[in-house]
Design a binder for these strands. Structure first.
Lengths: 203, 203
DNA sequence: CTTCTAGGTAAGTAATTACTCACTCACTAA
DNA sequence: TTAGTGAGTGAGTAATTACTTACCTAGAAG
């Protein structure tokens, strides 16, 4: 017989169990009974830790998952004006499903179901990234390195390519026909260079 | 007092009512009572027309909504090798929320909730577009007009930019700061030309 | 040893849910 | 006129749901 858990351990366990269930089946599709079973406790205990099912859901969304690590690496490459690396870092981070497959589903579910904390969730996980990238693009435009486009739109365009790819793969089960690295390289290349054969060596 | 509806009228009415409710709150979030109320009939009648709630949901997803119109216009521009117009047509079609805002939500919900008809729904509304565009890109690469990239990845990249934009706007309520036309133009331009100031007039 | 507390539960409850049943009503064809 | 048919419904039902209540028990503190 295992010893009793502390309150914190239990809460963490409940959050973990609930997160994967909510991600798989949404808020309405998940019952408190299932959550309790997945966490290995009685249903009543769930309500000892979280007053309502919605509060438990909120606790999951509110859990901090920072982009700090990524943003740090991006910042460094940005200082060196290493465009390719800046975009590659972001693409690789956003495209890799290993980071957390449930997070994307959770994000979509929360937005679709109109949860009140959905905004905050989106802001913490995504908005900062758009803003960061848009700022960098603006800088590069001002420096004359990039063409004069709307920086925010450009940032969205790039992240859109990558996120959409992941969406297709993880949500719609569209098979990838290339490795992650190759895909990232293609997207970064496409975005940075453009698909049209540029008027380069016309005499 | 209005006369009785025919079976077909009723079914259409039920499907319309249910579609907007399912789009708004998902399958699990919508009750048959609500659907009946929205369609202005008793709950019992719903089950006279559709044996189960899931069958009603299936009937919605199975309803044909063709891309034929768009694909026709694209085809014509493709014959003329009017790259800009091909991409603009697709972008404008995919970005415009007026087409049907509920369709996108329905698509996402069905995929997230793992409905069995989700695949077919996705195939009919989206996959054909990827394939079409990929084929065109392949042609243009072979003709030497486009750089040598993976056509399918390129098609996904472009549609990804556009769909992601719409997702941000309609699902995550991110405000647009430009008109549709301007946005489409920017995306098409970005994709076709590339963001880096090309080595164009270097002597 | 006792006592108190915090982790834990079995067995509820009221409300909601998808779905059914027995029935009425409006219209049509013989 | 009348019998039949299909649209339509009110009032259920069994199951499930989020949440409660009353209770239990392991173990540290005194």
């Amino acid at each position: 017989m295992a010893t009793r858990s502390t309150s914190q351990e239990r809460q963490a366990g409940l959050i973990a169990a609930a997160a994967s269930l909510f991600a798989a089946k949404g808020f309405n599709g998940t019952t408190t009974k299932e959550i309790a079973k997945a966490a290995g406790v009685s249903e009543a205990l769930v309500f000892k830790h979280f007053p309502t099912k919605r509060a438990l859901y909120g606790a999951i969304l509110a859990e901090k998952v920072t982009l700090d690590e990524l943003l740090g690496a991006v910042e460094e490459s940005a200082r060196k004006r290493d465009d390719r690396r800046v975009f590659t870092l972001i693409a690789a981070f956003r495209i890799k499903p290993a980071v957390d497959s449930t997070l994307l589903r959770l994000l979509l579910f929360s937005a679709l179901e109109g949860h009140e904390l959905s905004d905050m969730f989106f802001g913490k996980h995504h908005r900062v990234l758009y803003d960061h990238l848009a700022t960098y693009i603006k800088t590069r435009i001002d420096e004359g390195a990039f063409r004069d486009v709307d920086p925010l739109l450009a940032a969205r365009a790039f992240i859109g390519m990558v996120v959409h790819h992941r969406l297709l793969h993880e949500i719609f089960a569209v098979p990838m026909h290339q490795t992650h690295d190759a895909t990232v390289r293609t997207y970064v290349d496409l975005f940075l260079t453009g698909i049209i054969r540029a008027r380069r060596s016309r005499p």
